[in-house]
Design a protein around this nucleic acid. Structure first.
Lengths: 335, 335
DNA sequence: CTGAAAGCGCTAACAA
DNA sequence: TTGTTAGCGCTTTCAG
């Protein structure tokens, strides 16, 4: 049942050298004569030898494995956000030749940390205690998309507050007065901060905050549909809507068009993510771009440099979002 | 830098027993006196001891790790299919206490198999040679959603051909004569077989196969939009459309509504997947349900039983799809 | 019920 | 450039 029954010793025997020499070629050390190198390589490929990773790790005393923990919150899997994260982390691990161990948490079970060199949290939502437990164990870790300044922990995040501000400010600049928003899950920092940015922009221009213009969504298309239906039924229909994700924006657009309204003339919509899918809808989506893939990749790189001792202490990075103007927003009718 | 510096020896010392005894309690062997058990447990929690998994694996000579390889094909990540697979496999691994190593392949690089007890392929698309290489290495493996009868390999698949047949047959039964289809990626077996099922149903009822009613999509919403636009512009517009995924069906519905057509009265739409998101659109989607999550979970269980020697030889399972009737299909107008 | 000792497969000084 | 040897941390006979 063992993956391969042949060991370094078999290779050594066949090549007529010591196991040390074999080990050297496995680890690409230069100090091996051409002749022996050739013989060992022949033996390796002949025997289809694969070094036993557990033995290597044990002997080297290191663990080139990173754990990616996804919040139990199932919606995250269906979101562009979640998918980009997985892809980015996966890609970076591939590049750095790290094993990626995938862990879905319910937020309560303790995390098995005895098998990883470091851990990446794909957002933390109601599982702060897990993070703290990890920290206490001294396992290097990295949090994605959460600014955590009260803990001695590393993170790579996006400035969601300024993203929310940007989106709203842009709408205001276009001349909109009645601006609504569908928020993301407010238990996530990203969701909460985008909303804060929205409010801040309103306040900055002395616009009142109308409660009926704020719908608490959860990043799902479903919640966006409910929001759109409510907004569009209002006597005082908003002329612009800021959605906390592109997916939600897309669903809102669908509802708008189902009702026979024109977009962006009747209602402008701005999203958040820069999901490539948002370019090919009926109207190319104006949005706030956040570098998710890069954030995910960076987090692996930073984590690795901490694990391997190249860097110390918490690394705290906040990436800026960016306004991407396409076609789903314009000045309100009658301006 | 090591996750934990304390070893079984430290625990033994503190508990005043031998390392063997400590090992016994780690492995929950019953032959330990209550007194020693208590002392060891105390020492373990006091020292925050975590056994070194590499050492355990090495000593035990086994590898309770499964690799999940995702085709490079990026679209799969954004699909309901891909996400359900990841969730299902992840969940099963959690339950069976297996480590899940996540591997995104470009289809060409050889897979690193020396670190896993078994491998799961999330579909195979243009990477058959990888599968064959794995087989030759003797690593137990399992293929998801591909019926592979010419190879001595295990799989858990869905009968996509009969799914395609079912959908089309249902439409025909409703009285439709002009039935179109947007296919999935035809390089995937699922895509090809759903189309075959479509054709078979047509043939069974002696309907001609109109090339203009077949649009080669790739499971993406984008391709579905193109398809819908083409279908709806036809002089002889189809009265029903079979989409090879719910996501595509949803996009088609959006296009239909954007054009001010009525659904299902003007055009009926049937999907494939039973994506929960398809219930909350403007019209609840009629679809073909496939047990993706279960398929993923089962594949892990089967793989595990093979790896652990409980079962032998290839396990070949084909799960049936099921018609789920909701509101997006009705008899064509004028019947 | 407990412990001594021999590995698991590989790496890394240290000599040669 | 090569080989000898001592571990890495844990499990597992085998005695006791």
């Amino acid at each position: 049942m063992t993956p391969s029954k042949i060991s370094i010793e078999d290779v050594a025997r066949r090549a007529g050298v010591s196991i040390t020499t074999v080990s050297r070629v496995i680890n690409k050390q230069p100090s091996v004569s051409k002749k022996n190198l050739a013989r060992v390589e022949e033996a390796i490929s002949f025997l289809k030898f694969k070094p036993n990773v557990s033995a290597q790790r044990l002997a080297k005393g290191l663990n080139n494995t990173v754990g990616l923990v996804m919040p139990g919150y199932p919606g995250i899997f269906y979101s562009f956000y979640g998918v980009e994260l997985i892809r980015g982390v996966g890609h970076a691990c591939e590049t750095l030749r790290l094993d990626l161990i995938f862990h879905i948490t319910n937020g309560y079970n303790p995390l098995l940390t005895n098998n990883v060199g470091g851990i990446i949290f794909a957002d933390i939502i109601e599982n702060r205690k897990q993070v703290m437990a990890i920290l206490e164990e001294g396992v290097p870790c990295m949090i994605i998309n959460n600014i955590v300044d009260d803990l001695d922990v590393s993170y790579v995040a996006i400035d969601n507050r300024s993203g929310g501000f940007m989106a709203t400010d842009y709408l205001i600049g276009l001349g909109h007065k009645r601006i609504a928003t569908v928020t993301g899950n407010l238990h996530t920092q990203a969701g909460a901060q985008r909303l804060e940015g929205f409010k801040k922009a309103l306040a900055r221009h002395n616009f009142p905050l109308e409660p009926e213009y704020v719908f608490e969504g959860d990043y799902s298309r479903r919640s966006a549909r409910s929001a759109a239906e409510r907004f569009l039924s209002l006597k005082n229909r908003p002329t612009a809507i800021f959605a906390a994700s592109d997916d939600m924006a897309l669903e809102i657009i669908a509802v708008i068009m189902e009702r026979g309204l024109k977009l962006p003339q009747d209602v402008s919509v701005i999203g958040f993510d820069d999901n490539p899918a948002a370019i090919y809808g009926p109207v190319a989506l104006t949005t706030i771009k956040q570098p998710l893939f890069q954030m995910a990749e960076d987090s692996v790189k930073y984590l690795n440099s901490i694990v391997s001792g190249k860097k110390r202490g918490p690394i705290k990075v906040i990436l800026p979002p960016k306004l991407v103007i396409r076609e789903s927003c314009c000045a309100p009718a009658g301006t």
